[in-house]
């Protein structure tokens, strides 16, 4: 593997060029180029405040980047989250954002919203089209719950789920919009080692469904065993991008995380 900056082994799903996000005088993301290939799992790491989540928000339309372009499968993404999701880029949040007073299966059904079309009139009349669509939505939602392993909890309120299950539900809701690219913001934060391992398996399974995945994570063991490629963001700039092995041994990464060593001793 001799992957270098911007080099992608597969046909690109997402191509980000020169994305910059400024808040007044603060430049949170500074000219980042980033590419994700088909069925690729890419990790995004960096110390706290490096701009990882801001970068995610730029990709998903929560922020409109000050400069730069985000292109998903050849079409530029506009700055509105629902349109980005409709285009095929779904995300989860760092602090779980479920609909706590809806049931688990309803949460997933909401994710189907942008793939269904029934309007007010049809909902009022309840014609055959309405009934077919509701049936399909129900079936797909149940299938996804089965996929993430929450089938048994389908009719519980989302708020009553254990923490790890809430994370998985959020992934199921994101998958419900039939995305081609899934962005996971710290999917294992607060999880125990067992749950983390399950999440890793889940991400592999999602990749096998044909999706590309970008993961922000602080758990290095998780990232380095999961990802095909890892990009490191430091102070809004992309420091390095490459295979897990390359990134793991890069001095600049270690320096960014731990600080420059007083002596010259180096560790892996």
């Amino acid at each position: 593997m001799t992957a270098t900056v911007g080099d992608t082994p597969h046909k690109p799903v997402l191509r980000v060029s020169g994305v910059t996000m400024r808040f007044g005088g603060l430049t949170a993301v500074d000219g980042v180029d980033f590419t994700v290939g088909e069925q690729e799992i890419v990790g995004l790491i960096g110390p706290n405040g490096a701009g990882k989540t801001t970068f995610f928000n730029c990709l998903t339309g929560m922020y409109v980047p000050t400069a730069g372009q985000v292109i998903y499968r050849g079409t530029p993404l506009s700055g509105r989250p629902d349109l980005v999701t409709k285009a095929g880029v779904a995300r989860t949040f760092q602090n779980i954002r479920l609909f706590p007073n809806m049931t688990v299966v309803e949460n997933v059904k909401v994710g189907r919203h942008c793939r269904t079309t029934v309007g007010a009139l049809s909902a009022l009349v309840r014609g055959p089209k309405y009934r077919r669509e509701e049936r399909e939505t129900e079936a797909q939602a149940r299938e996804l719950l089965d996929f993430v392993g929450l089938a048994d909890a389908a009719d519980d309120l989302a708020r009553n789920l254990p923490y790890g299950d809430q994370r998985r539900l959020e992934i199921a809701r994101a998958l419900a919009s039939d995305p081609g690219l899934l962005l996971l913001d710290e999917p294992t934060a607060g999880m125990n080692p067992l749950e983390t391992a399950q999440t890793k398996d889940l991400v592999f399974k999602i990749r096998d469904r044909g999706l590309a995945v970008v993961v922000i994570e602080h758990d290095m063991r998780f990232i380095f065993t999961l990802c095909d490629r890892v990009a490191v963001l430091v102070q809004g700039r992309k420091l390095i991008e490459g295979s897990p092995a390359q990134v793991q041994h890069d001095e600049r990464v270690i320096a960014a995380y731990i600080g420059t060593p007083a002596g010259s001793e180096q560790q892996a």
Binding site: R80, K86, F93, R97, L98, F99, V110, G111, H113, C114
Partner: peptide
């Protein structure tokens, strides 16, 4: 209902 619960998440859900 989703909008009432969490507008940001609802929009992100499409």
């Amino acid at each position: 209902l989703a909008i009432r619960e969490d507008e940001v998440a609802a929009q992100a859900a499409g």
